[in-house]
Structure formats: C-alpha cells, structure tokens
Design a protein around this nucleic acid. Structure first.
Lengths: 193, 193, 193, 193
DNA sequence: TATGAATGAGTCTTCATTCAT
DNA sequence: AATGAATGAAGACTCATTCAT
C-alpha cells in the first residue's frame, strides 16, 4: 500500500520535472502534469494538497538526493579542501548530466511565488549548512584562515557556484560545466587559505 | 512636453517599484500600480505597451543608474583592486539603502516569465562586463593572476555578491549588508592575486 | 456519456439563441449565455473553444436542420416548380414560427466579424446549392428556360427570399410572412419559364 | 465658414470609407479615421456626436448620391422596363467601379449594431421606394401585371440585386458584375409582365 | 482509490469620449 | 476651432480545486 502510494507519488514528481522542463513554469498546468503521469487531475490531489506542494516536494526530493551524494563524498574526503572540491564537482556534474533538473532548479522554480521560494529556501539550507561545515572543518584543520566569517563565506561560495550554473544554462550550454570545477575551486581555496 | 511625459513615466516606475515591493510580483495588478501613481488604468498603456514593459523599464532604469555610479567610481580608482572594492561597496550600499529596489531586483523580478528574464538579462550584462573589465585591468596591472579565466571569474564574483544580498534580504535584514564589503572583497582579492 | 455531453451542448445553443435574440449580438456576454443555460462560465469552454464557436455551431445546427427539412420535401416533389414552392414555403414558415431564430439569422449573426461570416457562409452554401439543383432539374424537365444562368439565378432567388424575411422582421412582423409564399413563387416561376 | 466645415466633414467621410474598406469594421477605430483624415481625434467630435454618426452619415451621403443618379436616369427613361434596367445597371456599375464603397456597404456596415442598422435602413428606404415607383409606373403603363404586390415585389427585386453584389464580392470579384445586368433584368421583367 | 466534469474567481487591455489648453 | 493626453468601463478566457460517482 504505502510502497504503492510512494510509487505513484514519485511518478507525479517525475512527470512534474519533465513537464516543467519542457513547458516552463507558467506552461505547467496541473492537468498537463496529471496527463504526463498517467493519472486523472483529481488524483493529484490525493497525493498533494496544493499544486505548490508538488513543486516543493520535487525540490526537496531532488536536492535531498544531491545532499546525500555530498555527504557520502565528504566522508571519504581526508581534507576540507578535498571535500570542497568534491562538493563543487558533484554540484556541476550532476546538473550537467541532468539538464531537465538544471532547468527546473535554476530557471523555472525561481519564477514561483515568495511563499514557494521560502519553502525551496528551506531545502537549500542543508546544502548551505554543509558548505559551512566544510569551512569550519578547514579552520580546525588550520588549512583555512581562522578569521573567516563562515556565515558570510558559505553564501559567497554557494552564490558563485549557482551563478556559474545559471550562466552556463542561459548561454545554451555551449561549453563543459564540469570543466569549470578546477578553476572555480582554485579560486575558492586561494580565498580561503 | 517631453519632460512632462518623462515625469509621468517615472511616476509610474516609482509606483511600480513600491507596489511590487509591498505586494509581490503576483499581487501587483496594473490597476494597483495605476492607483499608486495617481493615474487611470488606461494611462499606463500610453507609456507602456504591456504590463511586462513596466518591469523591464523599471529594471533598466534602476540598473542603468547603478552602472552609471559604478563607472564614475571606477574612473576615480587608481587600481583594479580599489575599483573592485568600489563596485562591491556600491552594490551592497545602494541595495541596503533602497530596500524596495532590493526586493524587486532580488526577489520579485526573478519570478517573471522567461521572456522578461531575458530582457532583464540584457540589463545585467553591462554590469557583468564591467566586472570583467576590472579583472582584465588587474591582470594588466599585474596585481591579478595572469592565468585567471575572466569569463568564469566574473560570474563567480557576481554570483557571490548577488547571493549575499539575497540571503541578507531573506534573513529579514538582521545585520548590516555594507558591513560585509570588507570581508567579501578580501575573499575576492585573495582569490584573484 | 456522449448523449449527456450532447445534451448540454444543445442546452448552451438554445440558451445562446434566446439570449442573442433578446439582447442582440453585442449584448450577449458569455456570462449571460452561461447563466441562461444554467452552467458556470467556464463550462462553456468545455464545449466551445471560443465565444465565436458558439455562434458558428448555432448557425450550423439550425441551418442544418432546415436543409434536412428541404431535402425531405424536395424528394417528395414531383416537379422542380413544386420543389421550389416547397423551399420557399419552408423558408418562410420556419422563420415565421421561430422568431428568435429569425432574429439571430437575419439580424444578429450578420453583425459578426469577417471570420465568423465566412464560417456562416459555409453553412449557407449547401442551401444555395440546393436551389441551384432545383434550377438544373427544372431545365432538364424543360419546365425552366434552357438559357438560365443557374449560378446567377440561385443568388437572385436566395437574395429575394432573404430580403423579404428581413424586411418582414424589421417592419415589426405586422403581416403574415407565409402569406407571401404564393406571390413570391409566382414571381419566380414567371422569371424561370 | 460653412463651406470650410463642409469640406472637413467630407474629408472625414472619405477617410472613414477608406479606413473601413482597408481595416474592416472592427479594425476602424476613431483614432485611425482621424489620422487618415489628418485631424486630431477630438476634432472628429466637433463634426460628429458619436462614432456611429460617422457611419450613418457615410451611408446617407453615398446612397444619397446613388439615388440622385437613379432619379436622373429614370426621368430619361421612356418606359418602366427601361427605368428598371437603368436602376440595375447603375446599381451594379457603381459598386463595381467603387470597390471600397462596395465593401463598406455590403460587408462592413452590416456588422454594426441594431441601432445603426436601423439608421442605415432609413437610407435604403428611398431606394426601395424608388423601385416601387417604377413598379407602379409599369402597372399604369400596362407593361407590368396589374395583380403585382408592389410592396412585396420591391423587396424581391432589391434583395435579388443586393445578394448578387454580395456574392460577387465574396467570390473575390472573379467575374464582371455589370455583365450580370442583362440576365438579371431579363429575369425581373419576365416575372413582372 | 480513482475519476474528470464542473466550477467561478480573477485581470489585462482596448478604445470611444472628454476637456484643459 | 483644434488638439491629443487622459479617462475608465467592460468582458473573454484560464486553470487550480472540488465532489458526485
């Protein structure tokens, strides 16, 4: 039962991702998502209370999976610098390999209401926190400056990576995103040390 | 005549800025903007072809003024490093002093259609270019690394500053934004040298 | 299912006929038609793509039924002259008995856009053709002149009948329309023989 | 003064005729007519009380000129049959030579409100009356049947000619309209004698 | 659980008309 | 007489959500 429910829940999320990537945020009506998912419009409301909840769940689910990837990699990393490199690598590589997801997160979901954006912000928070943890670890390791403002710097790093992904998308993906990892991390580490 | 027309044009832009900041993008009906500007609904359409054009003009106008400020300051700067500091200072200070504008640029205008975002992107481009010019100047001055990828780095810098402003806003402006300039520029310069 | 859909489709057409006859073309808002039909405004758009489509469907439906009547009668007619009399009789009698329909076809629907009028023209064509077929039959029977220009004459006959109906309506229906059949057909037959 | 006023009055009528023929009834805004006439929008309202009045005046003026032509020709005619031929000839020839006028009278002006159409009907009445007078004259001359219902027949004749013009226009004017005069009048005269 | 027909609130835009200059 | 900037009423259409089956 629950697994069956879970299954349909994910079918709807997959459908939403595809529909939004193909039609844009404003072209993604509930009826279109329902059709893509192979269910009736009303069925959507057995799994989600409001349309917005689909989008929030979508973002939570996808970002949750990324954060899990991050955590696994970080544990394997012997230094904070290595962990930071891993984070940037996963960030760029995953979005490069999943263009639909990239469009949805970088372009489409940002067109939503303030309320939705706040909910999305909650999903991003663990990621921002994860970056800060690496900074704290680096300071403890004495590989990063002790006078770093970790609250500020975590935003500098996230914002920088985020913008690089967005500009890569808007440019039409004319170059390799993952090829930007080394130069990006290099810039970060010089700033941190 | 023209000045009178220009005057009303700006009255509408001011009204739009205020209404959007107060009600959010989706709560800003044309009728509300007209009322705030003290004109009839139809009058809006003597100055703007479509509702979207109000937003595009608003962004162009405000960002244009900022870029003018940037240009003036940069000319006075004797070094690229100093110019970069000026840019960050103006970026943070102006938005801190004009919270309505900050809300509109960081939160509301990003909720718009792809078409509008493209138009906005055109307004941002000169700013991104201005940052790159500083980088090029720094390399020429030999104060920045010669192996910098200026195309990538301009996005790293812009994205970092942009995210700092947004997180400051979302946090409820609980701390001083301009107080972040030194640490931000310090991080940048270490990465650039 | 389909019959239920068909049922509502016709309820809307009936409502549209009544509303247009009572309020005129320009006074017939979608909301008024919906109210008369006892459905919500949005329901209209489950059955018709645009407002104009209601009018086209209305015309097609009503004229289609008339043409069916014509065809049945003509088959029973032993001569072309008799068939022509039947056509005129049905034309006048039907519109006299259904004043709402008469108003809609003679007055209101002619106020529509060129696009709509073209669609309506397509519905009238079978009727014009039917008249021409009678002319051809009459020539074959040698009861009508062999030198008749059937393409021209079908318009002369249709236009004459059409104008008689319109002037009867505009006059305020102060006399019997069906009482004009004999004299009208008499005039026609003299011209045709 | 008055002649100067008259002059501008006619400039506006000419402009309206051209604009309606080119843009259709619904595409003919007051501002467009004003521009074509070379006056300001407000100036229109010094000569016409409402937009509708432009159209009514246009129809009155043009049809008035036609009726004058008819009257002149009829006086020259020695028989009612000849007069009827003249009428049909002028009707077809004038509209064939003035396609703009033909479009405006046959297609565009019929898309107007009931009120306007009634006003236009008043302009048509003298023409209908003129046709009836010919019929009466023919009966007096004993060249037409004494049992003719002149009230009915005048509509049969007008409607027939009107429809022939309209179908010629809608067909794209692929054939000569004036070439239809002989056959049309022939049909009429057979019906009348 | 699932369906999908029905609902109805909500808004941009046009354009005839006015009136201060 | 002439201007043209300003007015503001009016309406088609969409789509998230519900509920009878």
């Amino acid at each position: 039962m629950t697994s069956r429910k879970q299954e349909k829940f994910e079918m709807i999320l997959d459908a939403a991702e595809k529909v939004i990537a193909e039609n844009g945020f404003h072209g993604s009506q509930v009826s279109k998502i329902a059709k893509e998912a192979g269910v009736a419009d009303g069925t959507i409301y057995l799994y989600f209370k409001k349309k917005e909840d689909i989008l929030i769940s979508l973002f939570e689910d996808r970002l949750g999976k990324l954060v899990a990837l991050f955590n696994a990699s970080i544990e394997e990393s012997s230094t904070a610098a290595e962990a930071l490199r891993k984070v940037c690598e996963i960030h760029f590589t995953q979005l490069e390999q999943n263009v639909n997801l990239a469009y949805v997160t970088q372009i489409e979901l940002r067109q939503s209401s303030l309320e939705l954006r706040k909910a999305i912000g909650l999903s991003v928070k663990p990621y921002i926190q994860l970056i800060e943890n690496i900074l704290i670890r680096g300071i403890a390791e004495k590989s990063f400056r002790a006078d770093l403002d970790t609250k500020l710097t975590r935003h500098l790093l996230f914002g920088a990576m985020d913008e690089v992904v967005t500009s890569w998308l808007i440019s039409g993906r004319k170059y390799s995103l993952s090829a930007q990892v080394d130069k990006t991390v290099d810039f970060f580490l010089r700033g941190l040390k």
